[in-house]
Design a protein around this nucleic acid. Sequence first.
DNA 1: CTGCACTATATAAATATTGACATAGATGGC
DNA 2: GCCATCTATGTCAATATTTATATAGTGCAG
Lengths: 183, 183
Amino acid sequence: MLGMLREPHSGYDIKKTFEKSLRSFWRAELSQIYPLLQKMEDEGLLTSKAGASEKGPTRRVYKRSAKGREQLQSWLLEGPVVGTERIGYLAQTYFLANLKDDDKAIEFMQDLRTYLSDWLASLEDAEDEWRANDPGYPDKLSDESFYPQLTLDMGLAKVRVGVEWCDRSIARIRDRQAKRNNA
Amino acid sequence: MLGMLREPHSGYDIKKTFEKSLRSFWRAELSQIYPLLQKMEDEGLLTSKAGASEKGPTRRVYKRSAKGREQLQSWLLEGPVVGTERIGYLAQTYFLANLKDDDKAIEFMQDLRTYLSDWLASLEDAEDEWRANDPGYPDKLSDESFYPQLTLDMGLAKVRVGVEWCDRSIARIRDRQAKRNNA
DNA sequence: CTGCACTATATAAATATTGACATAGATGGC
DNA sequence: GCCATCTATGTCAATATTTATATAGTGCAG
């Protein structure tokens, strides 16, 4: 949120940025965002201003303070935040033998493949749109666009690997199944 | 935890399994494990038995009940748990321009590369060890080993992609830096 | 003119998770 | 004898997060 609030934005705006651009690696609900904005303002990391909205109730926009900017920078200087990932579908995969039915396991992998390939398609769409609108894509992007593009690059690579892994896994489960039936 | 407790294990054992085998995609602290074991026993998902330990204080081992097994199966049948990933270093990457110093950003990426390549080495070691001890690796594994091996396969693929992405990103940041200095 | 979708903010209750702390036996090295 | 390390269990306080709920204005389609 400190990263997003270089320019003033409302909680609602922040939610939209999470959905649009950070979707692949971070999510947050409005019920988490609003109290946190207040807390961060209390701590002096943000300042806020109320203003009329074109549509709907009064907007309150927040912007980071000098202290907020410093806190963001020290977070970045602390080094990469690693080792906190929690990937539900891999935990499930680990225990898939408990289904006692290879067909159910294949179905699981096919569902996952569908999810990942939809995700890949949406990342590819985002890339196409970006390429169409920004003549500098991807090698002459502005400073503000360059690092976000790195995360898109990683998203594309990772999701492609995920789809390939699903295909490989389905083939391997089928192969075991066939061997079992021959034996 | 329901997946692990097909055979009786203590909270301490469960923690070790998280560290050894699920490290790449799930982590849990003892302070989360112990209360949860008690809660799950209260809910009738687990049964427990106290017994002497070879070293240290009394061990309490838990095993899943029929109800626990059913709950595990319905979790697996609900389909893949997706969309909950939260990857700290990508959130940082997105906002790296705030450092206002390409050298610091390169340092960030190099630190990340070091972390990921250490992780890759440990996964490769795990695979080598497995291959050395199990003549069926990877195509004739037992049911209990096959699905865990799928998660190792994914871990290897994903971390390799991560290392490549770091290398590519470092090169791209350097390239921008060089162009800026020429201009 | 009604209902739906979108903008917009917010709280309450429940749940999940971490980090710090407390306890204690066994074993081996210095 | 002492200290570190590993086994082993647990609590507490603080924090983080989700799900459900409430409110309300605007604009558009039917």
